[in-house]
């Protein structure tokens, strides 16, 4: 793909990406984030937009494979911005306000040994996205939406 700058997407054009992942499949989650990064680079987004989207994609995907049974990460890319939706079947989040606090984590010791479980994923998403929303049902699953807007100019 040739690099023209993100304007090459045109006013109405968009790209959709979808990644399916099972619980504990860290490598699929990592690959999804790096493919999203590659696609944004090829389309020609600014480095800072790519970096922010990459952090959000990585943390959303990792939360699926760490905390849920299975799920999907959907990415919608337009010239004006990027939307990410992570949908999973899993335990859900009983207290979202608590989960959003930096340092709060229910990750198991074996997960923590691999470097996860700092309780920084959701705060990272909040910090790097222009907006986020969580919808969750305990015992059913979680849907996380986050978006990154490209400033005009």
């Amino acid at each position: 793909m040739k690099i023209y700058g993100r304007q090459c997407l045109g006013k109405k054009a968009f790209l959709e990406l979808e990644y399916q992942m099972e619980g504990r499949d860290f490598s699929v989650a990592g690959t999804a984030a790096s493919q999203i990064k590659k696609m944004l680079t090829e389309v020609g987004f600014e480095p800072e937009i790519i970096r922010r989207t990459t952090v959000v994609a990585y943390e959303a995907a990792m939360n699926i494979v760490i905390h849920a049974f299975r799920g999907r990460l959907l990415v919608h890319i337009e010239a004006d911005g990027i939307g990410l939706t992570a949908v999973d079947e899993g335990p859900g989040i009983a207290d979202v306000a608590m989960a959003m606090q930096e340092g709060y984590s229910t990750a198991s010791p074996s997960i923590r040994e691999m470097g996860f479980g700092a309780g920084m994923g959701l705060p990272n998403i909040k910090r790097h996205a222009d907006g986020m929303a969580i919808e969750t049902r305990v015992g059913e699953g979680t849907t996380l939406k986050a978006w990154i807007i490209c400033k005009k100019g």
């Binding site: 860290f26 690959t31 790096s34 990064k37 691999m114 470097g115 996860f116």
Partner: peptide
């Protein structure tokens, strides 16, 4: 662990 590769790449 293998997960460091994704973080390094990203």
């Amino acid at each position: 662990h293998e997960n460091i590769v994704a973080v390094a790449l990203l």
